[in-house]
Amino acid sequence: MSCIETVTESLTGRAAILRLLPMSRREAFGRVGAPLAWEAEEGTGIQRTIAPTDLGREFLRDGYPELVTHPERDIQLWHAGFTQTYLERDVRSLRQVGGLTQFQSFLRALAARSGQLLNLSTLARDLGVAVNTAKAWLSVLEATHRIFIVRPYFANIGKRLVKTPKIYFGDPGTLCYLTGLRDPDHAAAGPMAGCLMETAVLGEIIKTLTSRGLSPQVHFWRTAAGVEVDFLVEAGTKFIPIEVKKSATPRPAMATSLRAFQRDLGDRVGPAYLVHSGEGKLPLGSGVTAVGFSEL
C-alpha cells in the first residue's frame, strides 16, 4: 500500500492490484489448485492430514512464508519482529495512527475479541479513545489485511453494511502472539481454541478464493432467537453454510443450526459442512457433512 501512495499517476486500466495474504494450507503443501470441500465430491486432493495433537502447533506458526519454509524458526521471536515492523513501518506510512503504543493496545484488545460481535463503542471506551479514532484504526487493520470483517447475512444488501460485524484476524499465528498464547496444547484445547479454529477455517477459504483472483463473499447468519451459523460462503447462486467446532468427534446434534438455515433458505442453500478438529468425512444427515479441518 505504501508503494501505491508514492505513484504519481493513477494507472487506471493499466495496473492490477494483488492481495498478498499469508499462505493457505494448499499453498504450503504445494496443492494450490486443490478444490474446496464443496467443489469436488471426490475430496480436496490435498492428501495431507493433521492430527488433533498437532493442530495447536499449526495455530502458533501458521501461514507466513518465512515460518512455513523455515519451521525451525523461533515462532515468538518472528511474530514479535513482524508486529514491531508492521507498527513502525506500515502503520506510520498510512498516517492515520498517532501514538503507536496506544494503537498496539488496540491491536491486542481487538485480538482478545476476535470471532465475537464487535462493539466498537465499548472497545473505544475501555481503551480511553474516541470512537472515530477506533474506526480509523480498524480501517488501517482491514486495509493492511491484518483482519477480516465478516458481516451478517441479510437478503437486503444495505442491511449487511450497517449491522454489527464480527472481526477475525487474518492469521492464527498472529492472533496467538497478540493474545499471549505460547503452548500448543493450550492453543488447541484452551479457551481460545474455538476462535482459533474459526480463524483458521475462514482464512483457508478466503486465501484459497483470493489466490484465484476472486473476491470472496463470506457472511455469518444469526436469528433473533440466537441460532447462528459461523460462515456462509457465496458460491454462484448458492450459499455454503459452515459451522466450526473444536471437537474432534462430530455429532448430529452439532448440526442443528445448519439444518435451521437449510429450512429458512430452502433451495438457495448448497451442501452444508461441519468442520471439526479431527480427521475424516462423516454424513450428519441430509445435506450435511462433517469434515476434518485438513479436508476442508
Rank of each mutant, 00 (worst) to 15 (best):
M197K: 01
T199E: 02
T199W: 04
T199K: 02
A200W: 01
V201I: 00
V201H: 00
L202E: 05
G203A: 15
E204H: 05
E204W: 07
E204D: 06
T208Q: 09
T210Q: 08
S211P: 03
S211V: 09
S215V: 06
S215Q: 12
V218Q: 02
H219W: 03
F220E: 03
W221I: 01
A224S: 11
A224V: 05
A224F: 05
A225M: 05
G226Q: 08
E228R: 07
V229T: 06
D230V: 05
F231L: 11
F231K: 03
L232R: 01
V233R: 05
V233H: 03
V233L: 09
A235G: 04
G236F: 08
K238V: 02
F239A: 11
I240R: 07
I240W: 07
P241L: 12
P241S: 09
E243R: 08
V244M: 09
K245M: 08
K246E: 11
K246Q: 14
K246L: 08
S247V: 03
A248K: 06
A248D: 15
A248S: 15
T249R: 12
T249E: 09
P250L: 00
R251D: 04
R251W: 02
R251E: 15
R251Q: 15
R251S: 12
P252K: 10
P252S: 12
A253C: 06
M254T: 08
M254V: 08
A255L: 11
S257V: 12
S257W: 13
S257C: 13
L258T: 15
A260H: 15
F261K: 09
Q262W: 10
Q262G: 13
Q262F: 12
Q262R: 13
D264N: 11
D264T: 10
L265W: 11
L265N: 01
G266D: 03
